[in-house]
Structure formats: structure tokens, C-alpha cells
């Protein structure tokens, strides 16, 4: 199914949080949604299934590149995540110049979206009668 970029951003953020990644890394993925292609999303989903170690290491590597330090960046996700920071990745180094955001929708297979959904669901709190009655701070009928 085709997804909007905003949907993808929100889904990646929740999935990363649900998979136990640090909030800051989840935010980096949120920011990258406008630069990802379907293969990138597949790679992110695969890494989240393994605990997200590649994603965390990639953020650290990009931090190093941003500071002018050498870093081995073999991940195909690196250019998109660099673009989300406002610069280009060229020959493993930071190059100035923003990458245009991709505004077109992105085709994500439903099973992949479901994988991300499963991670995201770990950020939701099960419904209870008490939380339903009191958690939103509003009644359940509005016929006035």
C-alpha cells in the first residue's frame, strides 16, 4: 500500500521506540522518512527485528562524519540519514548542500508495515475500563 511520508515518519518513530531503540535514534528515523526508498524501509525493519544495533551504530558513525572524523559507512541507509541532517554524504565525508525531500508517496508492502506495526504496538497501553472512563478527561457521550 502507498503511504504518505508523514505516515512513514510516525510509524518509524513508534516502531523504533517500541523496538527499544533510544528515543533520539527514533527521532533521527522520523526525520529521515522523506529521504527513504522502499528498500531502505525494508532494511530498517530488518534491523529493528534484530534489536536495532546497526541503526544505532550508523547514527554514531554519522556523528563522527559530521565532526570530520573518518568512519566506515557501508550501510545503504547512510545517504538518507545524512540527508535528514541537512548534508550530503560523498565518499564517506560530509559535503554541504541539502538533498531535496522526496514528497511522493512510498509503496510499503503490507507485511512490512505490519512488522513495523508490531513494534509500534509496544508503545500502546492496553485499554481498561478505568482508563477509558478517566484517562481522556472527558465523558463518553456528548448529546448536549
Amino acid at each position: 500500500m502507498k503511504r504518505s511520508r508523514a505516515e512513514l515518519a510516525a510509524q518509524l518513530m513508534k516502531a523504533a521506540r517500541g523496538a527499544g531503540l533510544p528515543l533520539g535514534v527514533a527521532e533521527d528515523l522520523y526525520a529521515a522518512a522523506g529521504f527513504l526508498d522502499p528498500e531502505d524501509v525494508a532494511r530498517i525493519a530488518a534491523d529493528l527485528a534484530q534489536g536495532g544495533a546497526e541503526l544505532v551504530a550508523l547514527m554514531h558513525a554519522l556523528d563522527a562524519v559530521e565532526c570530520g572524523q573518518g568512519s566506515s559507512l557501508t550501510s545503504s541507509l547512510a545517504p538518507a540519514l545524512a540527508a535528514a541532517r541537512g548534508w550530503r554524504l560523498e565518499a564517506g565525508r560530509k559535503a554541504e548542500g541539502a538533498v531535496p525531500v522526496l514528497s511522493h508517496r512510498i509503496e510499503i508492502p503490507d507485511d512490512r508495515w505490519a512488522e513495523l506495526d508490531a513494534h509500534a504496538a509496544r508503545t500502546y497501553v492496553p485499554d481498561t475500563a478505568a482508563s477509558r472512563a478517566q484517562g481522556a478527561g472527558a465523558g463518553q457521550i456528548d448529546n448536549d
Binding site: 533510544p22 528515543l23 533520539g24 527514533a26 527521532e27 533521527d28 547514527m59
Partner: peptide, 8 residues
């Protein structure tokens, strides 16, 4: 890395 968001 757990402090990345707060630092930002």
C-alpha cells in the same frame, strides 16, 4: 545513546 534526544 539514551541521552541523544535530551541533548538535541
Amino acid at each position: 545513546p539514551e541521552h541523544r534526544a535530551a541533548l538535541r
